[in-house]
Computed example of a mutant assay.
Amino acid sequence: MKAAVVPELGAKPEIQDLPVPEPGPGQVLVRMVASGICHTDIHAAHGDWPVKPNPPFVPGHEGVGIVEKLGPGAGLHAVGDRVAIAWLGSACGNCSYCVSGWETLCESQQNSGYSIDGAYAEYAVADDRFVVAVPGEVSSLDAAPLTCAGVTTFKSIKVSRLQPGETAVVFGIGGLGHLALQYARIFGARVIAVDLEDEKLELATSLGADHVINARDTDPVEAIQDLGGADVAVALASAPKPFEQAFSSLRRGGRLVCVALPASGTMSVPIFDTVLGGKSIIGSIVGTRADLADVFKLHAAGRTKIIAESRRLEDVNACFDDVLAGRVPARLVFEF
Rank of each mutant, 00 (worst) to 15 (best):
261 L>P: 01
62 E>A: 03
156 S>R: 08
289 R>S: 08
99 V>H: 13
336 F>L: 06
292 L>R: 00
254 G>C: 04
293 A>W: 01
255 R>W: 01
283 G>L: 14
29 L>Q: 07
231 D>F: 05
295 V>Q: 08
196 L>Q: 13
211 H>V: 13
305 K>C: 04
130 F>D: 01
97 Y>L: 05
195 D>M: 09
108 S>M: 05
127 D>A: 09
272 F>R: 09
142 D>C: 10
50 P>C: 11
66 I>H: 12
31 R>T: 12
153 T>F: 01
227 L>D: 12
112 S>K: 08
50 P>F: 08
38 C>M: 06
324 L>Q: 15
76 L>E: 07
141 L>W: 02
269 V>I: 15
30 V>N: 00
179 L>T: 02
21 P>N: 07
179 L>N: 11
234 V>W: 01
171 F>P: 04
77 H>E: 07
254 G>N: 13
199 E>F: 09
47 G>Y: 05
301 A>Q: 13
227 L>S: 06
239 A>R: 15
309 E>T: 10
2 K>I: 05
287 G>T: 01
97 Y>W: 13
134 V>W: 03
268 S>V: 10
296 F>C: 09
182 Q>L: 03
84 A>E: 04
333 V>D: 01
30 V>F: 03
16 Q>P: 02
264 S>P: 02
88 L>A: 01
263 A>V: 12
110 Q>A: 14
319 C>A: 15
57 F>V: 10
47 G>F: 02
269 V>F: 14
89 G>M: 07
38 C>Q: 04
122 E>D: 13
218 T>R: 11
17 D>A: 11
239 A>V: 13
282 I>G: 12
180 A>S: 07
78 A>E: 04
18 L>R: 14
77 H>M: 02
307 I>E: 08
298 L>M: 15
163 Q>H: 13
215 A>C: 07
156 S>H: 06
172 G>C: 10
137 E>N: 14
67 V>F: 03
81 D>C: 07
295 V>L: 10
45 A>I: 00
251 R>E: 07
110 Q>L: 10
28 V>Y: 11
96 S>H: 15
99 V>Q: 15
145 P>S: 06
333 V>M: 09
334 F>C: 03
119 A>G: 15
266 T>I: 11
211 H>K: 15
255 R>I: 00
76 L>R: 15
202 E>K: 14
103 E>P: 06
94 N>A: 12
61 H>A: 05
2 K>V: 01
268 S>Q: 14
89 G>Y: 13
215 A>V: 02
327 R>W: 03
301 A>H: 13
136 G>K: 15
336 F>K: 05
199 E>T: 07
145 P>D: 00
214 N>R: 04
334 F>Q: 01
298 L>D: 07
278 G>T: 11
320 F>H: 14
285 I>F: 14
218 T>E: 06
257 V>R: 11
106 C>L: 10
117 D>Q: 07
194 V>M: 04
284 S>T: 09
316 V>G: 02
174 G>M: 02
133 A>E: 06
157 I>W: 03
91 A>M: 03
